[in-house]
């Protein structure tokens, strides 16, 4: 496994009364695999990705339990620079906001070269040459010119390509992409997704792709983990998930997809709203919104049921493999 996360729990609040914003999250990503982590705003998917990257804001949320293994090495409590020192730095991340993710007062070339210096141990002309190479790799035309540019001279799509180039400078075996296309125009979105897919194949890189968009998941991911209320409620191969969702929440998400409701006057929604962290302490987190809720769901934590090879759901009464309409 390139990345293996086991029972990851991230908490906020005082040590004595912690509130879990991510609880007991586990997943694996194999070599060259793209895992889509999907869920609504506030479900804990960004916190999960920041925890995996070692970038949780300080002071703030902390990893209270679980373990993160990067290519077999435990990196749970290490920040990126500590991982580099320990020789386990081959993980990188791109973010949702390309407009604010680059330092406005430094040249593009310097910002890429900075990462090259850390990870390749070269500097000066060699680092700039590598930066040039990386811009070619992310298909930025006129690379030599762009190296001398400042972020404000580039468009959002170009900046996200620069962010990808910075990430690639870390020679990552695992790339975390936290909603990298949400802030971009639809046409640019498609280009960036195509680029990521292509890089994943060419560099044999694994990707943890975080999004709230089921359409993007369908295009890009090999496997999917659906997150709700800080937990992963269903994991499956992308085909199995779309054809046979087993968790009621996953099914609800599918039913809301515009592509499945062509011609409808109103899009269906899942009634109610996502729980605040710590609001639900007993039973299933999804129970208050679940159409098929039973008495048991309100009192007992749902079991993790293995439905088939690689397909799991966190539900006491999973759907029986019906195809969504």
């Amino acid at each position: 496994m390139m990345l293996s996360v086991r029972d990851l729990t991230v908490s906020i609040g005082p040590e004595t009364a912690p509130i879990d914003i991510v609880s007991g999250v586990s997943f694996d990503i194999g070599k060259g695999e793209i895992l889509g982590l999907v869920g609504e705003s506030g479900c804990g998917k960004s916190m999960t990705s920041l925890a995996v990257m070692g970038l949780l804001p300080q002071p703030g949320p902390r990893i209270r339990g679980g373990r993160i293994d990067l290519v077999g090495a435990d990196v749970t409590q290490l920040q990126p620079w500590q991982r580099v020192e320990a020789g386990h730095g081959r993980i990188a991340m791109i973010f949702q906001e390309p407009m604010t993710s680059l330092n406005p007062v430094r040249r593009i070339g310097d910002q890429i070269a900075e990462a090259v210096r850390v990870h390749d141990g070269v500097s000066g002309a060699a680092a700039q040459a590598r930066a040039h190479e990386l811009l070619d790799l992310v298909r930025i035309p006129d690379a030599a010119l762009q190296l001398a540019a400042y972020p404000h001279q580039l468009s959002g799509g170009q900046r996200q390509r620069i962010m990808i180039a910075i990430a690639l400078a870390c020679r990552p075996q695992v790339l975390i992409a936290d909603e990298p296309t949400t802030a971009l125009d639809v046409t640019i979105q498609i280009q960036i997704l195509g680029l990521l897919r292509d890089l994943c194949n060419r560099l044999d890189m694994s990707i943890l792709f975080i999004t709230h968009d089921m359409g993007v998941i369908a295009q890009l991911a090999d496997r999917v983990a659906v997150m709700y209320g800080g937990r992963i409620v269903e994991t499956a191969d992308v085909g199995a998930l779309f054809n046979e969702p087993r968790h009621h929440y996953t099914r609800g998400l599918m039913d809301c997809m515009p592509a499945r409701n062509l011609g409808a006057r109103r899009l269906p929604t899942i009634a109610g709203q996502a729980p605040r962290p710590g609001a639900i302490r007993t039973g299933c987190v999804f129970a208050p919104r679940c159409a098929a809720v039973q008495d048991l769901c309100l009192v007992a934590a749902p079991p993790r049921i293995v439905l088939s090879e690689g397909h799991e759901a966190l539900c006491a009464f999973p759907l029986q493999g019906e195809r969504p309409s």
Binding site: M53, P80, W81, S101, N103, M163
Partner: peptide
């Protein structure tokens, strides 16, 4: 956000302060 980007690169905390936070 760009300070988070800088940390993600794996540069040391003091370099993050000097190159990214202080100048801005």
């Amino acid at each position: 956000d760009y300070v988070r980007t800088a940390r993600a690169k794996g540069i040391r905390p003091w370099q993050v302060v000097r190159r990214h936070i202080l100048r801005n």
